[in-house]
Simulated assay, not measured.
Amino acid sequence: MAREIRVSVDDDEVFERMRARKRELDLSWEEVLHRGLRDREGGVEDLGDRIERQVTRRVEQSLGSAFGVDVGGPGDRDPTPGYEPDPPGGVDPAGPSTPGDPTAGTAGTAGTAGGTGGLDEEMETLANAEDAVLAFPTLADEPHNTVPLRVTIETGADGMAVDVVAVRTSRAAADRNRFDRGARRAIAEELAGGGTATLSLAAGEEEYPVVPELSWATEDGHPTVTEVEIVEVRFGD
């Protein structure tokens, strides 16, 4: 008997972040495949030709082994300048490590072999952060004029430091961060004139005047904040 299993997700920032990381990895693989070139001492070699030659050599060796025929030997080397034998286990599916390849040689990222620690740490940080809302006193008190965030907070003798982990994009925040035309200019003028925004936590039980730096994009004709940095928390304002 078939069973239907439904998973309810109240807040899916983690899933959105994982989808974004998957898109980054897909693009990096596409970049490697389309580049298709490897620097050599004597020039460049087409990646497709290299793979085809290695596969052909493997087939010949397998047939020779099956029929007891000695195929190649110590002198059977690829004539390509700068040729290096295949690594144990076959052709490296990640291709060459070239400058600009975001998946090559980056410690702690999901693009390295066994290096998912970076993504795991990012997910843990996101899960341990708390919800916050950034509002702007110069705009009407409407949800679409606010930016939903996930933040971590540190306090000490120097005051408070707020680290924005993510701009929330989950279904629970779908009615926020869709500003009207003209709102971006009003926010820019307010901040440039020394004004502040309001960071609210715990459903408004904690509020702090802050100075944010905002990065913008446009979605469906509406200005949308894509990144936030809290530069300063101003106590006493």
Rank of each mutant, 00 (worst) to 15 (best):
A2F: 15
E4T: 14
I5K: 08
I5R: 09
R6I: 10
R6M: 10
V7L: 12
V9I: 15
D11P: 02
V14W: 08
R17D: 10
R17T: 11
R17F: 08
R19D: 10
R21H: 10
K22Q: 14
R23V: 10
R23S: 10
E24N: 05
D26Y: 07
L27C: 07
L27Y: 04
W29Q: 15
H34Q: 15
R40V: 11
G42R: 09
G43C: 06
G48N: 10
G48R: 10
D49W: 03
R50Y: 03
R50F: 06
E52D: 05
Q54M: 08
Q54Y: 09
V55W: 05
R57V: 03
R58D: 04
V59G: 01
E60F: 08
Q61S: 04
S65A: 15
F67T: 05
V69W: 01
P74A: 15
G75C: 07
D76M: 02
D76N: 09
T80R: 08
E84N: 07
P88C: 05
P88N: 01
P88F: 08
G90P: 07
V91Y: 11
T98A: 14
G100F: 01
T106W: 07
A107L: 13
G108P: 03
G111R: 02
A113N: 06
A113M: 12
G114F: 04
G115E: 09
T116R: 06
G118T: 10
M123A: 15
E124H: 11
E124T: 14
T125W: 02
T125R: 11
N128S: 13
A129K: 01
E130W: 00
D131N: 12
A132S: 02
P137I: 10
D141F: 11
E142W: 00
H144M: 08
V147S: 04
V147E: 00
P148M: 06
L149P: 01
T155V: 12
M160H: 00
V162L: 00
V162C: 02
D163S: 13
V167P: 07
T169P: 06
T169F: 07
S170N: 12
R171S: 15
R171E: 14
R171A: 15
A173L: 08
A173V: 12
A174W: 08
D175P: 01
R178V: 02
D180N: 08
R181L: 11
A183W: 04
R185P: 00
R185N: 13
A186E: 15
A188Q: 09
A188E: 15
A192N: 13
G193N: 09
A197C: 06
L199T: 08
L199F: 08
A202T: 07
A203Q: 13
G204A: 04
G204I: 06
E205T: 14
V210Q: 02
V211C: 00
V211L: 13
V211R: 14
A217Q: 09
E219V: 12
H222R: 13
P223W: 02
T224I: 03
V225P: 05
V225L: 10
T226D: 02
T226M: 00
E229L: 11
E229G: 04
V233W: 00
R234D: 14
